[in-house]
Each structure stands twice: as structure tokens, then as C-alpha cells.
């Protein structure tokens, strides 16, 4: 089990209105777990040609993925004007908090760190949140309160501020405990549709879901029309699906390659007029 759903839930609870830039593609670690993630590639030169061509085909709210088009990257991004901004998978941007896996190296005087120990009790994962030292007390308290709010029976949650520049917080689930479900916004996900989440009249569509462990449950719900004989593909290969109560179409990821999972939808002919993708759920 990955601790990322828990990390995302903790951030969403503690930082309402958070905007996040996930620079970890081709993995896309946090993309599936938060609704307002802008995806990017920190090192596009390292992409192999096929992966670069694949990622270049996606648009997120009409824009290319960050890191692939310097001109588009330099354009104003109203979403990035949010009060609380967070960067994952890159060194940071002015005014934004930085979240990373493992441990950051030495930090300047004015930067503090909150160590986050998250996941299942038998396999905890370690992250660090880097922030201005002046913000540590307030932000740590919000995170601690959120951890207690998320914790269920049998969970361990708690932490403390050790110095003005260092705090530590743990949130550990017992084995088998249900973890938070990710609900990425179908309109906000990177995709190759001419109009985000609008499927009607299209023969096929690709959406970039982000990193999903093998066997992750995926559920889709459509609106606007009956979806008809839709085929669901993950990472380019057709998967068996089941219809679930409430109009959900469910499948499971076959392999966790470490690269962002790509959801494909295809119809013989075209998707019915008016059809759109209304909801996506991952995990659970």
C-alpha cells in the first residue's frame, strides 16, 4: 500500500483551497489523489521518446503539461495565484511550500521542515514539508488536527514541534484499514479530449490518472447519456469491467509500472452524443 492517498488526504484537510503542482511525471504521484493538481515533468530531457510523445499529447485545462513547453510554462496561471501553493517533485517555486519524499538536505535559516511519517504501521513512509519558519507553528497545528480527524479506530496519530525549525507528525493505519479514496476532477485531469471530460462524439479518449499501485480499484461514472458499449483500457490494454450500483463502471489496474496510469475509453463508432465523464474514484 502506498502512503500517498493518506498524504493527499492530510494535505486536503489541513490546507483547504490548496493548489498543487506535481512535477513527478512520468510518475504523477499525487495526481490521482487530489482534485486540483497541475501536472508537470521536472526533467523532460530524461524522458524516452515514446513517453515524451505520449505526455505531449495531453492538455490540462487547455494547457500542455508543465515542463514541455517553455512558452506555455511562462504564461500566467490564475490557478497558481491561490493562497496556499505546494510543489511536489521539484525544488520549489517562489512563495510555495515544498513537499518531498524522504529527507531534504541542509536548509537555509528561514526554512523549516515538518517530518511526516505516514502509511500502514508495518510499512511507514517518510516525507518532509518545507515551509517558511514563521509559518511552522500554525501549519503544524493544522496538520496535527487533520491527522487526528482522519485517524480511525486503531490508528496512531500525533506529533510535536521539536524546535522552531523542526516538527514531526505521524499518522499510521493498522493493516487492512480503509484508506482515503482519490477523487480527481475529470475536467481537471490531463487528457487528449478537445473539450475536457466531454466524450460525446469521440471514438476514444485518454486521461492521465497518475501513479497507481497494481490492483488499485478504479470507478467511473458517466452523465449526459447512457455510455453504451464502452471499452476501458489501462496503460493501453483493454481491461475487464463490472457495472456497480449507482451507475459506476469499475475496473482494476493490472500493473503498477511506476509510470502514470493512462485511462483509455473507446466506443465502436463514437460515444453517444451528450456523454461526459462525471466522476472518477481511485482506491478504496
Amino acid at each position: 500500500m502506498s502512503a500517498l492517498p493518506l498524504l493527499a488526504a492530510l494535505l486536503a484537510e489541513a490546507l483547504p483551497g490548496l493548489t498543487l503542482r506535481d512535477w513527478s511525471l512520468p510518475a504523477g504521484d499525487l495526481l490521482p489523489w487530489l482534485p486540483s493538481v497541475r501536472a508537470g515533468i521536472a526533467d523532460p530531457a530524461a524522458l524516452e521518446p515514446g513517453e515524451r510523445a505520449l505526455l505531449a499529447g495531453f492538455r490540462q485545462r487547455g494547457e500542455p503539461l508543465l515542463g514541455l513547453d517553455p512558452i506555455a510554462d511562462a504564461a500566467a496561471d490564475p490557478a497558481w495565484e491561490a493562497a496556499e501553493r505546494l510543489v511536489w517533485g521539484a525544488e520549489g517555486e517562489p512563495g510555495a511550500l515544498v513537499l518531498l519524499r524522504g529527507r531534504a538536505g541542509p536548509l537555509p535559516e528561514e526554512i523549516a521542515r515538518i517530518k511526516l511519517i505516514l502509511g500502514v504501521r508495518t510499512a511507514p513512509e517518510s516525507f518532509e514539508l518545507l515551509l517558511p519558519a514563521a509559518r511552522l507553528p500554525a501549519l503544524f497545528e493544522r496538520l496535527r488536527a487533520s491527522a487526528h480527524s482522519l485517524a480511525g479506530p486503531g490508528w496512531e496519530a500525533g506529533g510535536r514541534a521539536l524546535t522552531p525549525r523542526l516538527a514531526s507528525l505521524g499518522l499510521l493505519a493498522p493493516i487492512g484499514a480503509p484508506l482515503p479514496v482519490g477523487r480527481p476532477d475529470p475536467v481537471g485531469l490531463p487528457q487528449d479530449l478537445p473539450e475536457p471530460a466531454v466524450l460525446g462524439g469521440q471514438a476514444r479518449a485518454r486521461l492521465l490518472l497518475g501513479a497507481l499501485p497494481a490492483g488499485t480499484r478504479l470507478r467511473l461514472r458517466f452523465a449526459g447519456a447512457e455510455p453504451g458499449p464502452v471499452a476501458l483500457l489501462l496503460d493501453g490494454l483493454r481491461q475487464p469491467t463490472t457495472a456497480e450500483a449507482g451507475g459506476w463502471l469499475a475496473a482494476r489496474t493490472a500493473s503498477g509500472s511506476g509510470q502514470a496510469a493512462v485511462l483509455g475509453l473507446a466506443w465502436p463508432g463514437n460515444a453517444p452524443a451528450g456523454l461526459r465523464l462525471a466522476s472518477i474514484e481511485v482506491g478504496g
Binding site: G50, L54, R204, G236, L237, A266, P268
Partner: peptide, 20 residues
Amino acid sequence: DWLAEAPPGVRVVDPALAHR
């Protein structure tokens, strides 16, 4: 055509993801 008719036992793959 992701829904093309491949022989039994052959899986059709989206060319954009074949490199994986």
C-alpha cells in the same frame, strides 16, 4: 483502432502506450 479484431490470445494495445 483499439477495438480491432486481433487473433485469439493477442491483445490490442494503444500505439501511444506501446513503448511501455
